[in-house]
Amino acid sequence: MDRPGARIFDMTGRPMRGGGVVASSAVTEDEVLSEWIGQGYAFAASLPPK
């Protein structure tokens, strides 16, 4: 969450643990979008199975 444009996912005043939102203005190129997707995928893959 320390990258520009990133914030904790919070629609109701109760932040979603482990969730985040990236502002569209922070994703200016396909390469940047690929980095965000890669980070999200790596995080999800690190979680234990449900």
Results as ranks from 00 to 15, higher is better:
Leu47Phe: 06
Pro15Gly: 08
Arg7Trp: 10
Ala42Tyr: 07
Phe9Ala: 15
Asp2Phe: 08
Phe9Asn: 15
Gly18Ala: 01
Gly13Met: 07
Gly5Ile: 02
Ala45Arg: 08
Ala23Tyr: 02
Pro49Asp: 15
Met16Val: 13
Gly5Trp: 07
Ser34Gln: 14
Ala42Gly: 10
Pro4Cys: 04
Asp2Ala: 11
Glu35His: 05
Pro49Ser: 15
Phe43Thr: 12
Pro49Gln: 14
Ile37Lys: 08
Ala23Gly: 11
Ala23Glu: 15
Met16Ala: 15
Ser24Cys: 10
Val32Tyr: 05
Val27Phe: 00
Gly40His: 02
Ala26Lys: 12
Asp10Asn: 15
Gly18Cys: 01
Arg14Thr: 09
Ser34Asn: 13
Ala26Val: 07
Ile37Asp: 00
Gly20Met: 09
Lys50Ala: 13
Ser46Asn: 01
Arg7Glu: 11
Ala23Val: 03
Gly5His: 08
Gly20Gln: 06
Arg14Phe: 01
Glu29Ser: 14
Ala42Asp: 15
Phe43Glu: 13
Ala42Met: 04
Gly13Gln: 05
Phe43Val: 12
Gly19Asp: 03
Asp10Ala: 05
Ala26Pro: 13
Glu31Val: 06
Ala45Trp: 00
Val22Asp: 08
Met1Ile: 09
Val21Leu: 07
Ser24His: 12
Gln39Asn: 08
Pro15Thr: 04
Arg3Thr: 06
Pro49Ile: 09
Gly13Trp: 03
Ala45Cys: 00
Ala42Trp: 04
Gly5Val: 04
Val22Trp: 14
Gly38Ile: 00
Ala44Pro: 00
Phe9Leu: 14
Pro4Leu: 05
Val32Ile: 15
Ala44Asp: 07
Gly18Met: 01
Arg3Asp: 12
Val27Gly: 00
Ala26Met: 10
Gly18Gln: 01
Ala45Tyr: 00
Pro4Ser: 13
Gly38Cys: 01
Thr28Tyr: 04
Ser24Tyr: 06
Ala45Asp: 02
Met1Asn: 03
Gly38Ser: 07
Val22Ser: 07
Phe9Gln: 13
Phe43Leu: 12
Asp10Phe: 04
Arg17His: 10
Glu31Arg: 05
Ala23Arg: 10
Ala26His: 14
Ser25Trp: 11
Glu35Phe: 02
Gly13Arg: 05
